[in-house]
Every structure is written in structure tokens, then in C-alpha cells.
């Protein structure tokens, strides 16, 4: 028997293990990015890439342009979006104690979509106008959820969920109205946006969003033990000393802002926030102190890979990256439901 003694008792999670796992996933992410840089319609050879990054001369201008102006900004944005959506999914699943929650479940994304579609209809620019409108839509939704969904008893999960469903339905109706009245060229843009599209990316967006996401990550990481306890039941968490209402409010707000911001640059990319945290749990257990970096880095790598597929499968054409993630995500999800469903449905 593996009888424990005080000597051989091993703590389930140490900071060293968190750092170790994070480092390995970081390397994996960098590797994925390098592969993504090499793949595409135009050929970029590994030796060319090596010379570009080491600053050696002898690489054609065109290749340099493809790597630094087209592929790299897109890869970086994909990484940031995957990072944020995956963390968002993880935190919402913990807060709502619902493994099927995704970062879009509160309807924040439909508010973003409403803003973005309105921006496209008005013919605003992809660099500034549409993200701005989209983020404004997200903020409007967050405000609605907090005023409608929050009662004097605090934020009850089922009320929050129901509010999200209703907000989703309402904004979807408005979006359908826009689609019905849109002209053909606008229609294409709207549909691409709705399925998640990373082709309109540049460095300045990433430079703006990346530090915000990192700060959000640090704040959320400070709540990782709180989240562990909340998944064990809100009442239990309160008894063990968690200020559950405060933790929920802060986490909901931060994730909603993250999602609203990220969606405004990328559109609705589904399933990242659903499957990556689940994969993390299957491999690493349920401790959020480890799951947070795992989900963030895993989500980044996953979306970089998915976006690489999105721009190569029908090359020289492109599919929205949301189509790829759904293609991979939906079957995986059915598999999860089949194998673990019974445990989820008990309450």
C-alpha cells in the first residue's frame, strides 16, 4: 500500500511545478509560432527565417515582408486572443461551477458583435472604428448584466446565466436585422467577423492589448485559490473564508473586459475557452494555480495553430478561424460529454 508518512507526503502543487510546467508550455508555444511562420501560401524556408531573426543579410525583401508584416502580427494577435479566451473560459467555469460555460456565455460577446456589426454597416475602419464600437457594445452588455442580473442578494449564478441568455437573444435579433438589410459586400465582412477573423491584425493592436491581458492574468491569478474553493461550492467557500461575492464580482468584471476587448479585435472565436481548460483539467487536475498558466499558454498555442490552418487549408483563400476551432472543438466536446457527462449533470 502507498501508506503515507509525514516524510513522504508530497504537497499536491508547488511553485516550482507551476514554473516548470509554464516554462515547457512557453517553449511549446514558441515552437508553434515558428511553425506558423513557416507555413503559408508563399514559401518561407527555415534557413531564411533563421537569418531574418539573427539579422544576417541575404534574405529577399519579399520574404522579410511576409514574415514581419503579414504573418508575425497575425500570429501574435492569435496568441493573445487564445490566451484571453481560454483564461476567460476557465474562470467562468469555476465561478458558475459549470464545466460547460464558455467566455461568451454571459452575452458580453453578443454585445461586442452588435457594436462591431453596427460599425461595419456604418463603414468604419477595421483598425479603430470597429474595435471601438465593439468594445463599447461589450461595456454596454456588462453594465446590463450588472444592473439586471445582480440582485440585492448578490450575483446568483443562475440569474447571471439567464440574464446572459436573454441579452444574447436580444442582440442576436438586432444583428439578424442588420444582416437582413445589409448590402452584399458588407454582408461578407459581417459574416467573417461573426465567425472570428484574425486577418485584420497589426502590431499596434497587440501592443495595446498584451499588457492589459497580462495585468488581468496577474489579478485573476491572485484569485486562483478562491476559485478552487468556489468550485467546491459557494457555501463551502464562504465557510473557509472566501468573500465570495467580492471575488465573483471582480472576476466576472475582469473576464468580461478581457473578452470584450479581445472580441473587438478578433470577432467571435468559439470553443477555445471550452476545450483548452478541459484538456488542462484532464492532464493537470483541478487546481487553478496550475490551470491558469496552463490554459493561458495552451489557449495561445491552440489558436496560433488553428489560425495557421485557417489561412492554409484552402490557400490562397481563407476560412474564418472560428470555423476551424468549431471543427476541432465540437467533436472533442461531444467526446467529453459522452465520457464525463454523467458527473456533470448531477448537482
Amino acid at each position: 500500500m502507498n501508506q503515507m508518512t509525514l516524510k513522504n507526503i508530497k504537497r499536491p502543487l508547488s511553485p516550482v511545478r507551476v514554473a516548470y510546467v509554464s516554462l515547457i508550455l512557453c517553449l511549446f508555444l514558441v515552437l508553434t509560432m515558428v511553425f506558423s511562420l513557416l507555413l503559408g501560401t508563399a514559401e518561407v524556408r527555415p534557413d531564411q527565417l533563421w537569418r531574418l531573426f539573427t539579422g544576417e543579410p541575404g534574405v529577399e525583401k519579399a520574404v522579410s515582408l511576409i514574415v514581419f508584416k503579414i504573418r508575425l502580427p497575425r500570429i501574435i494577435l492569435a496568441g493573445i486572443v487564445g490566451f484571453s479566451l481560454s483564461i476567460g473560459g476557465l474562470v467562468f467555469q469555476a465561478l458558475l461551477r459549470n464545466p460547460l460555460a464558455d467566455p461568451f456565455i454571459l452575452g458580453v460577446s453578443s454585445g461586442s458583435a452588435f457594436g462591431a456589426v453596427l460599425g461595419i454597416i456604418l463603414g468604419l475602419s477595421y483598425n479603430l472604428g470597429i474595435p471601438f464600437m465593439s468594445f463599447a457594445g461589450a461595456l454596454l452588455t456588462i453594465y446590463l448584466i450588472l444592473t439586471v442580473g445582480r440582485r440585492k442578494m448578490g450575483m446568483e449564478s443562475s440569474t447571471i446565466l439567464l440574464t446572459g441568455v436573454i441579452i444574447n437573444a436580444f442582440f442576436t435579433a438586432i444583428i439578424m436585422f442588420f444582416i437582413a438589410t445589409a448590402t452584399d459586400d458588407r454582408l461578407h465582412s459581417i459574416l467573417f467577423w461573426l465567425y472570428g477573423d484574425l486577418s485584420q491584425s497589426n502590431y499596434s493592436e497587440s501592443a495595446l492589448v498584451a499588457p492589459i491581458m497580462l495585468a488581468a492574468f496577474v489579478i485573476l491569478y491572485g484569485f486562483s485559490r478562491h476559485l478552487n474553493l468556489i468550485t467546491a461550492g459557494e457555501e463551502t467557500a464562504v465557510q473557509l473564508g472566501v468573500d465570495v461575492e467580492r471575488a465573483k464580482l471582480i472576476c466576472f468584471l475582469i473576464v468580461s473586459l478581457m473578452v470584450g476587448l479581445v472580441v473587438s479585435f478578433s470577432g467571435l472565436i468559439g470553443f477555445v475557452g471550452l476545450i483548452i481548460p478541459h484538456l488542462g483539467r484532464m492532464v493537470f487536475g483541478s487546481d487553478h494555480r496550475l490551470l491558469m498558466p496552463v490554459s493561458a499558454l495552451g489557449g495561445a498555442a491552440f489558436l496560433v495553430a488553428a489560425d495557421t490552418l485557417a489561412r492554409t487549408v484552402i490557400s490562397p483563400g481563407e476560412v474564418p478561424v472560428g470555423v476551424i476551432t468549431a471543427f476541432i472543438g465540437a467533436p472533442f466536446f461531444i467526446y467529453l460529454l459522452k465520457t464525463r457527462g454523467s458527473r456533470w449533470t448531477r448537482s
Partner: peptide
């Protein structure tokens, strides 16, 4: 009683 939605080990609990 207490219900754990996600899997924790006894030691973690």
C-alpha cells in the same frame, strides 16, 4: 454533505 464538481484529491481538499 458536499459536492465537488471538479476532481480534487483528498489531500487537496
Amino acid at each position: 454533505e458536499s459536492y465537488f464538481r471538479f476532481s480534487f484529491s483528498t489531500l487537496e481538499v
